[in-house]
């Protein structure tokens, strides 16, 4: 069973994937996210950090045995067990499919829409409107898939659910108000089922679904 | 052993990953990329295609047994064997790490730099210059890693090499002229070693490394 330390800044949705996976697998995971263990912008710029993790990005994982890993999906995979990884080639491939879907289809439009509401990037009306349409398209694909399913792959939680839930967190917390998410009831049912799992709650705490779409923070 | 059909347009670097994986694993793979089997922009918009592949993007895979998969990394994984997937948790996680690295660190700056030279997107001087710097950073990370290694993970070709080689194809063919790639000799040695493997050559044919950096196609 894997054991080691996850270095990240606090409240990092990319790190949540690994933390939730460890809750399911029982992997012994320490999280270094605040001083003195880890100071974002300093620790990850030190020569010793960069010699193991040359991109200088977080999250990164360092096993008690010295095994080093970067890229959040790889870390979440390493800290998982077979139940989360998929017990057949088909299941493992489908889990990988949804993890890729989260990174390539959800994160770009979700960030374009949410970041201006947090004051992180400049608001751009056209980009935001296009991102909203992209998010609708993506939620439509998920809603269709979840029409007859409780979880994304197979009959129980897998890395697919963990990865996609974490990629949707900011959307559900910040902008998916009830009227916007109404057409995607299967997705919201699935999302709430997941975040209410003990292992998700242990990492995410109470996740409050947004009741009023946040506007950009001028 | 998996068997089925890959739907894509011709010369799609994302589809190459699955095709090369099948060369190594012996999976029976048919490629539908030209009429009448497949016409990009038409077939992938038909209701029957969209019912199996709701994103309408390619490549997609349909097994002879009806098993459907989208997202190129998932398809390449499904068509692989254990040697390509990694024979331990550590190896599999490292392979996943490099596949994520390709998608998140290589593709964005590579597309920004190469697309204008192909006439795919408008040239933007600042974006191109920034992309060149990111490509240098990424090649530096790879060059460091390959300083003491023949392949990215373990002692033989894996999905990591296949995925990263395919994500670098356009760069090496279009803009990485000798003077630009000179500081990254380990990467070029590794890249040439891979494309000269029989299984890569069977799919890619002769890959000619660029000798003059292409400029944007006004």
């Amino acid at each position: 069973m894997a054991a080691g330390t996850l270095y990240t800044y606090p409240e990092n949705w990319r790190a949540f994937k690994a933390q939730i996976a460890a809750q399911y697998s029982g992997a012994q995971l320490k999280v270094a996210s605040t001083p003195p263990a880890f100071t974002f912008g300093q620790t990850n710029r030190t020569p010793s950090f960069l010699s193991s993790f040359p991109l200088g990005k977080v999250p990164v994982f360092q096993g008690d045995d010295g095994f080093c890993l970067f890229e959040s999906n790889a870390i979440a995979y390493y800290l998982s067990n077979e139940a989360l990884r998929g017990s057949s080639s088909e299941a493992s491939a489908q889990i990988m499919q949804w993890a890729s879907f989260a990174d390539s289809e959800i994160i770009p439009p979700a960030s374009t829409w949410v970041f201006p509401t947090l004051g992180i990037i400049q608001y751009n009306k056209q980009a935001t409107e296009q991102a909203k349409e992209e998010v609708k398209r993506v939620l439509g694909v998920l809603n269709q898939h979840l029409n007859t399913r409780t979880f994304l792959v197979g009959e129980r939680v897998s890395l697919a659910d963990i990865t996609v839930v974490c990629s949707l967190l900011w959307l559900y917390k910040q902008v998916l108000e009830p009227s916007f998410r109404q057409p995607f009831a299967n997705v919201t049912r699935w999302f709430v089922t997941c975040i209410n799992q003990r292992q998700f709650k242990a990492v995410l705490g109470e996740v409050k679904l947004c009741d009023k779409m946040a506007q950009f923070d001028a | 052993m998996a068997a089925g059909t890959l739907y894509t347009y011709p010369e799609n670097w994302r589809a190459f990953k699955a095709q090369i994986a099948a060369q190594y694993s012996g999976a029976q793979l048919k490629v539908a990329s030209t009429p009448p089997a497949f016409t990009f922009g038409q077939t992938n918009r038909t209701p029957s295609f969209l019912s199996s592949f709701p994103l309408g993007k390619v490549p997609v895979f349909q097994g002879d047994d009806g098993f459907c998969l989208f997202e190129s990394n998932a398809i390449a994984y499904y068509l692989s064997n254990e040697a390509l997937r990694g024979s331990s948790s550590e190896a599999s996680a490292q392979i996943m790490q490099w596949a994520s690295f390709a998608d998140s660190e290589i593709i964005p700056p590579a597309s920004t730099w190469v697309f204008p030279t192909l006439g795919i997107i408008q040239y933007n001087k600042q974006a191109t210059e920034q992309a060149k710097e990111e490509v240098k950073r990424v090649l530096g990370v790879l060059n460091q890693h390959l300083n003491t290694r023949t392949f990215l993970v373990g002692e033989r070709v894996s999905l990591a090499d296949i995925t990263v080689v395919c994500s670098l194809l356009w760069l090496y063919k279009q803009v990485l002229e000798p003077s630009f790639r000179q500081p990254f000799a380990n990467v070029t040695r590794w890249f040439v070693t891979c494309i000269n493997q029989r299984q890569f050559k069977a799919v890619l044919g002769e890959v000619k490394l660029c000798d003059k950096m292409a400029q944007f196609d006004a």
Partner: peptide
């Protein structure tokens, strides 16, 4: 969390690039 999130590198233009690539290859493939 917001302060850290601003350090994340996101490919905001990915959708535009996907669209441009699709149009290009639809053109190439008639």
């Amino acid at each position: 969390a917001v302060q850290y999130l601003s350090q994340e590198k996101i490919w905001f233009e990915k959708t535009q690039y996907d669209e441009a690539e699709r149009r290009f290859y639809e053109g190439v493939n008639g």
